[in-house]
Computed example of a mutant assay.
Amino acid sequence: MKRILLLALAGPALGVMARPALADSAHENPDDVVAAAKQAALALAPPGAQVTISQAKAAAYMPACTAPLSVAITGNAPYQEAAVHCPAPVWVLYLTANVAAQQLVEVAARPIQAGQTLSEDDVSLAEKPVSLFAGRQTFAGAQQLIGAQARLSLQPGR
Rank of each mutant, 00 (worst) to 15 (best):
V99M: 04
P87K: 14
Y79E: 15
A49E: 08
A97R: 03
A72N: 09
W91E: 02
K38T: 09
A67V: 12
A45S: 08
L69P: 08
G75P: 01
A82F: 04
Q39C: 03
L95G: 08
Q39H: 06
Q50D: 10
A97Q: 03
Q80L: 11
I53D: 01
T52S: 10
Q39D: 15
L93R: 13
P46W: 02
V84I: 05
L69R: 10
A35M: 08
A67M: 15
A64D: 08
L44C: 02
A37Q: 09
A88V: 07
A45Q: 02
L93W: 06
S54Q: 03
N76Q: 13
I53G: 02
A56N: 08
A82C: 04
L44E: 09
K57T: 14
A36G: 08
C86I: 06
N76P: 09
V92I: 12
A88W: 08
V99K: 04
A58F: 13
C86N: 06
A58D: 15
A43F: 06
P87S: 15
T74C: 04
T96M: 06
N98T: 06
N76L: 10
V90A: 14
A35D: 07
N98E: 07
A36N: 10
C86Q: 03
A60H: 02
I73Y: 00
P87W: 09
C86D: 12
A35C: 05
Y79S: 15
A36H: 08
V90L: 06
A36V: 10
C65P: 12
A77S: 15
E81F: 08
A35E: 11
Y61H: 12
A58E: 13
P47Q: 02
P46E: 08
I73A: 06
V34W: 11
A49V: 13
I73F: 00
